[in-house]
């Protein structure tokens, strides 16, 4: 029952002299929510970039559903069922909110090479896009250009783009980064609902400890590129080295990113 959907073996990434990710091994069980926490600069985003093919690791292997995807190009991965969202909002600014999401719905089909019919006439992608927008509560903004959305709206759009592709595995890099704190629980509830209903697997980077402790099946703690600890939320919250490195010192510092 505990199939491993994503596995990283001894991943390492060097930027010049800097080792951003150092010998990281990770196993994510299908259907679970697996959080990765750690202070800024711990290497979480870099790890995501290795898992999703944006960077090539200096060493190590990435397996997705048992297949070696270490060097599979970025654009192949959504077709295999892997999707990601970005810590720094990464949208199509001058296209409408709906079009941003519709593009993601269309991406996995060969219809993208049909160039003599209007895009809107492929109603299944429009429908899927609208459904994804409804899930995150953006449907009333569908016709707005994405760049005029407020920051929180952009974060929701970021998530909707991911949802529209209906990936089996969703890698979420700080989905609530920079959002007003009263909006955070709601978005996290949405994510949790999606996971349960769609039987999805989630790998989550998140700073909000309450959220992480509530939502996660397992937690991996990173520190200076290495895995410091791994376990259930209860195990992690009682782990001394985790507390000294992360929970105690850095958690309350204002976030520098984004």
């Amino acid at each position: 029952m505990s199939e491993i959907i994503l596995e990283a073996q001894n991943l390492r990434k060097e930027f010049g002299g800097l080792i951003a990710v150092d010998d990281v091994t990770l196993r994510v069980t299908r259907g679970s929510t697996h959080s990765i926490i750690g202070p800024n600069g711990a290497g979480k985003t870099t790890l995501f970039n290795l898992l999703t093919g944006k960077y090539s690791p200096t060493r190590g292997t990435v397996l997705f559903k048992g297949q070696d995807v270490t060097h599979a190009p970025v654009h192949r991965r959504p077709h295999m069922g892997m999707g990601r969202s970005f810590q720094i909002t990464n949208i199509f600014p001058n296209l409408t909110v709906l079009e941003n999401v519709r593009l993601a719905a269309q991406a996995l089909s060969s219809d993208s090479f049909r160039f003599l019919r209007r895009a809107e006439s492929f109603t299944n992608y429009v429908d899927r896009a609208r459904a994804a927008l409804a899930l995150v509560g953006l449907e009333s903004m569908a016709e707005t250009p994405a760049l005029v959305l407020p920051h929180g709206g952009k974060r929701k759009l970021e998530l909707a783009i991911l949802l529209a592709a209906e990936p089996e595995l969703m890698l979420l890099d700080e989905p609530t980064a920079g959002m007003a704190s009263e909006q955070v629980p709601e978005l996290m509830r949405t994510i949790e609902t999606i996971r349960q209903q769609g039987n999805k697997t989630i790998v989550l980077v998140e700073h909000n400890m309450n959220v992480v402790m509530n939502i996660s099946d397992r937690i991996t703690v990173m520190h200076i590129g290495r895995v410091l600890a791994e376990g259930t939320p209860a195990e992690i919250s009682h782990n001394n080295s985790v507390q000294s490195v992360y929970l105690g010192e850095l958690y309350d510092l204002p976030r520098a990113e984004n």
């Binding site: 999703t52 944006k54 190009p73 970025v74 654009h75 192949r76 991965r77 959504p78 077709h79 999707g83 990601r84 970005f86 990464n90 949208i91 199509f92 600014p93 001058n94 296209l95 079009e99 519709r102 593009l103 993601a104 269309q106 991406a107 996995l108 219809d111 993208s112 090479f113 049909r114 160039f115 003599l116 019919r117 209007r118 895009a119 492929f122 783009i161 592709a165």
Partner: peptide, 25 residues
């Protein structure tokens, strides 16, 4: 205005994101 043209515009707007959602740009 076709599905192909939609991808063209996506590339113009943000090629990295177009790659990330699965387009061989």
């Amino acid at each position: 205005n076709s599905p192909t043209g939609a991808v063209f515009k996506a590339i113009r707007e943000n090629e990295d994101r177009a790659l990330a959602i699965g387009y061989n740009t």
